[in-house]
Amino acid sequence: MIEVVLKKGKEKAVLHRHPWVFSGAIENVKGKPANGDVVKLIDAKGAFMAYGFYNDRSRVALRLLEWDETVEINEQWFRGKVADAVAGRGDILLDGVTNTCRLIFSESDYLPGLIVDKYAGHLAVQVLTSGIEKMMPCIIDELQRLLNPESIFDKSDASSRNHEGLETQNIVLAGNHPPERVEVIENGIRYNINIAEGQKSGFYCDQRDNRKIVASYASGKKVLDCFSYTGGFTLNSLKSGAASVTSVDSSVLAIDTLKENVLLNNFDTGKVTTIASDVNKQLRKFREDGELFDIVVLDPPKYAPSRSALDKASRAYKDLNRLGMLLLNKGGLLATYSCSGAMNMETFKQVLAWAALDAGKQVQFINQFCQPEDHPVRSSFPEGEYLKGLLCRVF
């Protein structure tokens, strides 16, 4: 096995089992590994440190897999990690009210660059590293053995594949092409989702618990669901007896699917107003029209893809939340989220404080949100904690 030598003084993160080694921490490579090959990482004295995927195209040159030198990184190793991850989601899938969840969450499940989401009898995967790409035949076979899915569809269209020298692809890996509409159940609510054409892998199951929490306040309330996508917060609010819900998203396809989902659950269509529009523009229009709500949900896309973008993203989050606060009745609730890993909770609270100051509002933080158990955070990889949110009472 080809050896990669770590620079002296760069051992701490590896010893703490952080799975990333950046290219600047590498002294030299003893040979010419192909991108995606498993290599042995050694320290400056030649002592073993870990095994990992190598890629000279990526800023993260090594994605570490195993710290025990006696363990062989082979097909069975990868099958074991897949089986462990699937077994860890058993409680979610056996609760009788949910048949969709994240089965494999990349580094947090010790499979760096692999995302697998279950949608009823279908699986959607995203392959984001060259090492996982090489191991996909055995991974697909293990998923078939464990779950016997109707289809496994590759949604590897993320821009991060470019950093690994990989092309994007949307293809069937096993079984039949998933149908245009796949019906899933989450929290007892039915959704039609489009795996092949939908955003990300087709659905955002990371907000499952948070939708229930926000909906618990919605009875008799006038709710505004921004960046609604196919209606997660909208449908949960309706189920909890909201007086009305206004759903805003820039995607016409998402709004059309949301309307289908309202009908699918036999909810009162007269309680739902859907608007296909840029959210920030629509919030300003609501402000101009004097529209007010009891609950405002803000679940925007990732504004800060990296730490270098954090300052710009903070300004965007501040302006968005300022607008949201201005649309609330006195004592109303703002449920606001960030899915940017670079934005930690402390910074997010500060952004909300700035937004409140600009809006001339007083804000109480009454609850904090995080990602659910099928999106675990590995103790040695805090970067896996990307989703955070706050429930705010605004005066």
Rank of each mutant, 00 (worst) to 15 (best):
I2M: 05
E3L: 06
E3T: 05
V4D: 01
V4G: 05
V4L: 06
V5W: 00
V5T: 03
K8R: 13
K10S: 13
A13G: 07
L15Y: 14
L15W: 10
R17G: 00
R17E: 13
H18Y: 12
H18Q: 06
P19W: 00
W20T: 12
W20Y: 12
W20G: 09
V21S: 05
S23W: 15
G24W: 15
G24K: 13
G24Y: 13
A25R: 06
G31R: 04
K32A: 13
P33Y: 06
P33L: 02
A34M: 14
A34H: 14
G36F: 06
D37V: 09
V39T: 06
V39L: 09
I42Q: 08
I42A: 08
D43M: 02
A44S: 12
A44N: 12
K45N: 13
K45F: 11
K45V: 12
A47I: 09
A47C: 08
F48N: 03
F48H: 00
M49Y: 05
Y51C: 04
Y54M: 03
Y54E: 01
N55L: 00
N55R: 00
R57I: 10
R57F: 15
S58L: 08
S58E: 06
L62H: 09
L62I: 01
R63Y: 08
L64F: 10
E66H: 06
E66L: 02
E66Q: 07
W67R: 03
E69N: 09
E69S: 07
E69D: 03
V71I: 14
E72I: 15
E72H: 14
I73E: 00
N74C: 09
N74M: 11
Q76H: 11
W77C: 01
W77K: 01
G80I: 10
K81D: 04
K81L: 06
V82L: 09
V82M: 07
A83H: 13
A83Y: 14
A85C: 11
R89F: 09
R89C: 02
R89I: 00
G90P: 05
L93M: 07
L94G: 11
L94Q: 14
L94D: 12
G96W: 13
T98V: 01
N99V: 03
N99L: 04
T100A: 13
T100G: 10
C101T: 04
C101N: 02
C101F: 01
C101E: 03
